[in-house]
Design a binder for these strands. Structure first.
Length: 342
DNA sequence: ATGGTTTTTACTGCGTC
DNA sequence: GACGCGGTAAAAACCAT
């Protein structure tokens, strides 16, 4: 058992809960009393006997008439957890639902994991007899888990997705999305004729854009083993076939990242966004690369807020030539002026 | 394949520290 | 003289036709 899954296992056994519950029984008893005072709610329902107000008494699990005391329902089910958590750590310890299913594992994390360490649950070494048994179990578990080619395919692809996402510092939800996209691609038989690597790269690219933290094709290509052209081709194909709703990248989405990489103030970032919004209204941006626009706006904003940056530095973090930055930021400033300094 | 557009590369001149 | 910046021309990349 790996440490993670054994912890999960332990959390799901009932005796642990029972003991921790009884040891702190009086505490949560008191909590429940407080709860009941706050949660006794009167409803619109009327008592069938005296037409009085009916109240729900959560402490005793009864629905009772406030006037005549008639018990309308009893032994109602308390659907809340029977424990209280006072901080997130405690919640993690007490909760006994397992890990959430995740699409970043080829079997959604639902299958059994057998740890590679030859240790039992207490951390003691196993006897040689046991060790051999575990070896066999591991082997068959692995064979079972990655039964057919699709599963093996997925496993490899998800590994790649994870690797690239990490390299680009993309958050967990992007990996999740990328995994989902890949699954769909696999289900729709989009893979034949395309490399696993290429498709998974495209998935990461798409997922990053969908999550609003876009990476340029160049940046993605940097961490992939596939040439940019292939990524672009595959991405278009995937996006079309799965009809992914990926809006054209919004330059504004690049601003925070470029801004912080250059160590600019929030004010400058805000200014950059304003410039972009203005440019958008003027329609200056159509046809121009979003990254270039973003880079230019960041540079322009730095100038306007008197923060030191150079075109070279912006060009570095944005992967855009200085020339493009110059051209764009002129356009940005022009658009700004025609509006007039209101 | 082709033509039009955008981006990149490479180079040069200007002003400032 | 190095550096940041602006401009230009030609090449390359990209996109729709």
């Amino acid at each position: 058992m790996s440490e993670k899954s054994s912890a999960r296992q332990r959390a799901s056994t009932t005796d642990e809960e029972q003991t921790s519950e009884s040891s702190s029984g009086h505490r949560w008893q008191r909590q429940r009393e407080q709860e009941s005072t706050t949660e006794s709610t009167s409803t619109e329902v009327q008592c069938p006997e005296c037409s009085g107000n009916v109240i729900t008494d959560t402490e005793h699990g009864e629905t009772v008439c406030d006037d005549c005391g008639l018990v309308i329902t009893e032994d109602s089910v308390d659907r809340g957890p029977e424990w209280r958590a006072f901080d997130s750590k405690e919640k993690d310890q007490k909760s006994r639902v397992g890990a959430p299913t995740t699409n970043t594992m080829h079997d959604k994390g639902l299958s059994t994991n057998i740890d590679w360490r030859d240790r039992d649950a207490y951390g003691n070494a196993l006897s040689s007899n046991q060790r051999q048994k575990m070896q066999r179990l591991r082997k068959w578990n692995e064979r079972f888990r990655t039964r057919d080619s699709k599963e093996r395919n997925l496993k490899q692809a998800l590994g790649e997705i994870d690797r690239m996402a990490s390299a680009q510092g993309l958050p967990e939800n992007v990996r999740e999305t990328a995994s989902v996209i890949y699954r769909r691609a696999l289900d729709e038989d989009l893979l034949p004729g395309r490399s696993i690597e290429g498709v998974s790269t495209s998935c990461v690219y798409a997922a990053a854009r969908m999550a609003g933290v876009p990476r340029s094709l160049d940046e993605i290509a940097d961490v992939s083993r596939v040439p940019k052209s292939e990524i672009a081709r595959t991405y278009r194909y995937i996006a079309r076939e799965l009809s992914l709703e990926v809006k054209p990248a919004d330059p504004e989405q690049y601003v925070p990242r470029f801004g912080s990489e250059l160590g600019l103030s929030d004010e400058a970032k805000l200014r950059a966004r304003q410039l972009l919004q203005n440019a958008k209204e003027k329609g200056v941006h159509s046809g121009k690369s979003p990254v270039g626009l973003a880079a230019a706006s960041v540079y322009a904003a730095a100038l306007l807020t008197n923060e030191k940056t150079t075109q070279a530095a912006v060009s570095e973090v944005a992967d855009i030539s200085e020339v493009t930055i110059r051209n764009r930021y002129h356009e940005l400033l022009e658009a700004e002026e025609t509006v007039g300094i209101a």
